[in-house]
């Protein structure tokens, strides 16, 4: 074996001119002979072994190239068929999440605004009603006082007028209150119905959010 490797740099791990170790290179790798009197491996055995290693590298290189081309083929296939790659999917998922969130929030805002408007209307109604009950009672009281003065004549007594006035006031308010109680029962049934509807809407939202969360988790 006289050939001094022109490629001896590879065996000395000089990284500056590093070239990948191909099967071809392994197969034709040469080694310097040991000086006389020193022990060394039998050149035939070394070459036999290198040949086997090169064969293995060939096999793996071919298998890797095949896998790569399959990956390319599939990626192109999905791209051409309109199916998402990993990055596309991540982007789409977050767009979808944003859309769901925008819709859910808008829905929640509408529900809250409706509830507020409803509560506002009811409270304003109650206020108006309270004022009109008191107003009517005061009118009745004035009328009762007037009627007393008309019929009392010389027997007029200021205390008596005041008690006629208060009695009329009380009667009027009591009558209004018993009417209001019936109304209250109607109103509370209505409130319950509204509460149930809100509850159902909220459950829908929760389910939507949970389903979305689960989908996100699945897609990592």
């Amino acid at each position: 074996m006289t050939g001094y490797g022109d490629n001896s740099d590879h065996t000395h791990h000089d990284t500056s001119g590093w070239i990948p170790l191909s099967a071809e290179r392994i197969r034709h790798q040469t080694f310097r002979e040991t000086p006389l009197g020193r022990r060394g491996y039998r050149p035939e055995e070394v070459h036999l072994f290198l040949g086997r290693v090169a064969g293995e590298v060939d096999r793996w290189t071919a298998a890797y190239a095949e896998a790569q081309s399959e990956v390319h083929r599939l990626r192109n296939y999905f791209r051409n068929q309109g199916m998402a790659t990993e990055e596309d999917r991540a982007r789409e998922m977050s767009n979808e999440a944003i859309t769901v969130l925008v819709r859910a929030q808008a829905h929640a805002d509408r529900l809250i605004a409706d509830a507020q408007a409803h509560a506002s209307a009811m409270q304003l109604d109650a206020r108006t009603q309270a004022e009109s009950i008191v107003g009517r009672a005061r009118q009745e009281a004035d009328r009762a006082a007037h009627a007393y003065r008309a019929r009392a004549g010389v027997e007029y007594n200021a205390d008596r007028e005041q008690s006629e006035r208060l009695a009329a006031l009380g009667r009027s308010i009591l009558a209004a209150m018993s009417g209001a109680t019936t109304q209250m029962e109607g109103a509370s049934a209505q409130m319950r119905a509204i509460g149930d509807a809100f509850h159902a809407e909220l459950e829908k939202l929760t389910t939507m959010a949970e389903a979305h969360g689960a989908r996100l988790a699945r897609h990592g």
């Binding site: 409803h118 209307a121 009811m122």
Partner: peptide, 8 residues
Amino acid sequence: VPGGQVST
């Protein structure tokens, strides 16, 4: 305030 979330 009628319909007010906080004041009520």
